[in-house]
Each structure stands twice: as structure tokens, then as C-alpha cells.
Amino acid sequence: MLTAFALAAALVSDPVAAPVVLPSEPAPLHGTLLTPGGGTRAAALIIAGSGPTDRDGNSPLGVSAASYRLLAEGLAAHGVATVRTDKRGVGASAFAAGREEDLRFTTYADDTRAWAAETARLTGQPCAWLIGHSEGALVALAAVARDDTAVCGLVLLSGAGRPAGVVLREQLANVPEPWLGQSLAILSELEAGRTVAEVPPQLAALFRPSVQPYMISWLPLDPAELVAAYDGPVMIGQGTTDIQVGVVDAEAMAAARPDAALKIWEGVNHLLKVAPADRAANAATYADPNLPLAAGVVDDVAGFILGRR
């Protein structure tokens, strides 16, 4: 005999995935709407991190953990509909890229505002939550700095809490000379708003001239200042075995917004999965789509969103 809980679960159908398209120039942007089978209680837009990260959280740069797909599926089980998208220039949104030298951080913030309004419209909700992961957390903060009318609130996961230049200097600390000194010199020029024409081939992946205008638009942004200026509800989530940003970043944002919900997940890495502190073993999880999200991540995000409806 079915219990009442089992009967209710049996009556709830699987979530429904549907492609969604957002008009844009020079080409449309594309994503996936995942609608809960048992009805929508809230809606959220999942904002991808840096680089060529697609709607599922995967990247040709060695990431196939599918963290965003897993997050969307987990939230659907709680009644939270999600839109997750291919960034401009990535996946099905490849033709929307334009020239790299024309890209600015505000481009992603503008796209986020447009997607938030579309997410609310598609789901019949009055507003959409922004769930920003990694650099997507800063994109979310930049988006609401200009207009938050379509946004319910922010969920900031594995996001830097300090300006990018501070974090980059930490990440560059193990680069050998002479590349370290050259990297720091280029970074200082970009922070001052000046491009650098001559970049050693070994540093082109980070500092190539075509990406420098984007970096100049990104480096002045201070996540702590932005989160302090936003007056909507905020959740900050951070794992203790994240090898890209750290608990210090979450604490920096939480200090700027003492009323924010701060969740620190023990033994959880940048991709929101259980991982050891050892760098090699930690990095191995980046290529494992079968490894689930860490226990508590989905429940904490869903609980925060649904607790503020």
C-alpha cells in the first residue's frame, strides 16, 4: 500500500525541458527552460561562470561535471523552474559572439537582465531569482546594480568576494619567473585602464590584446561594494575545498551584507561537488558528470528561494 507521501510523489510528473530563445544582436541567445512537473513555485536564472561555459556548466577546457544541469534538476524537484543558458559566443549562442575586442563585462550583465525578464515571463512569475556561479555571481551583482525590477533576489555560489585583481594575483603566485613579473606588470596596466600591446606568447591565454578591453571593464568591479548596494535578499554559498576561490571571498561578501544567508559547505569544491583538498583529486571531479552535487547544496538554495516567496 502506498503511503500518502509516496502517492503524492507518484502523482508528480517528471520536469519538462524546453528550448528557449532570446532575441539579440548579432544573433539570438539560446537556453533551456526546465519546468517542474508538479507546478512552479518560483523561477530562477542560472548564470554561468567565466570562459566558454555552456548551459549545463560544461566547458571544452576540461569541465564536463554538468553542475548547472544537476542544479536545475534538483531545484525542479522542489518546484523551482529554471532557465540556464549558453553564454554569448558559446554553444547554440555561438553566433551571438561578435568580436572579442568589443566584449565588455556589461554585455553579460545586459544579457542577464534580459534573460531574467524572459524567465519571469515564461514561467508566469512576478520576478526571477538570479543564481550566479563563479564569475556568474559577479555578473548577477552587476546586473542588479543597474536594474533589478525583474529580479526577486540573488544566490551567489562560489563567487569571488574581492576585486578580480586581488584574486588573480593569488592565482598567479605560483607562476615562475620571468612570467610572474610580466603578468603582474600587465595586470597593473590593465587595472589603470591601459592596454598592453606586447604580450609574451606564454601569457596570451590570459592577457591577449583582444581580451584586454573586457578585462579593463571587469577589474574595477568590487563584489563586496556591489552586494552592499543591493537591497534585495541575498544568499552566499561557498565550499571549503574550492581551489579557485575561498571561504575568505564568501566572508568578504557576508561582511558587506550582514543580513545575507551565508552557507559554508564542508568538503565541497568550486563545482559544488564533494572533493578533497588535494588539487589533483579535486580537479578530477571537474570531468565527472555522474558525481552528484554535494548534499545540502540544492536543499539550501531551494529553501532560501522558497522561504522568501
Rank of each mutant, 00 (worst) to 15 (best):
L2P: 06
T3W: 04
L7Y: 14
D14V: 08
A17C: 09
A17H: 10
V21F: 10
A27K: 09
A27L: 11
H30N: 15
T32E: 03
L34Y: 04
P36Q: 03
P36G: 11
P36K: 06
T40Q: 05
I47L: 15
D54W: 02
R55N: 15
D56A: 15
N58R: 05
S64T: 15
R69C: 04
L71V: 15
L71K: 07
A77T: 03
T82Q: 09
T85D: 00
T85Q: 07
T85P: 06
R88D: 01
V90G: 01
G98V: 07
E101P: 03
E101Q: 13
F105P: 03
F105N: 04
T106H: 09
T106S: 13
D110P: 09
D110Q: 09
E118L: 02
A120D: 05
L122C: 03
L122Y: 07
L122S: 01
G124M: 02
C127I: 00
C127V: 10
L130Q: 01
G132V: 00
G132E: 02
H133E: 03
A140V: 03
A140Q: 07
A142F: 00
A143M: 01
A143Q: 09
A150P: 10
A150C: 10
V155D: 12
L156E: 00
L157H: 01
L157P: 04
P163H: 09
R169H: 10
S183Q: 05
L184Q: 02
L184W: 06
L184C: 08
L184Y: 02
L187F: 12
A192R: 15
G193L: 14
R194Q: 14
R194G: 12
R194P: 05
T195M: 14
A197F: 12
Q202C: 11
L203D: 14
A204G: 11
Q212H: 09
Q212C: 04
Y214P: 04
M215N: 04
W218A: 09
L219E: 00
P220E: 12
D222T: 06
A224Q: 03
D231A: 02
G237Q: 07
Q238L: 10
T240P: 06
T240C: 14
D242Q: 10
G246R: 05
V247Q: 11
D259Y: 00
D259F: 10
K263Q: 13
I264E: 02
G267C: 12
G267P: 09
V268D: 15
N269H: 08
N269K: 15
L272N: 00
L272Q: 10
K273E: 04
A275G: 11
D278I: 06
A280D: 14
A280N: 05
A281F: 05
A283F: 13
A284H: 12
A287N: 10
D288R: 13
L291Q: 14
L293C: 08
V297G: 01
V298Y: 01
A302D: 08
L306T: 00
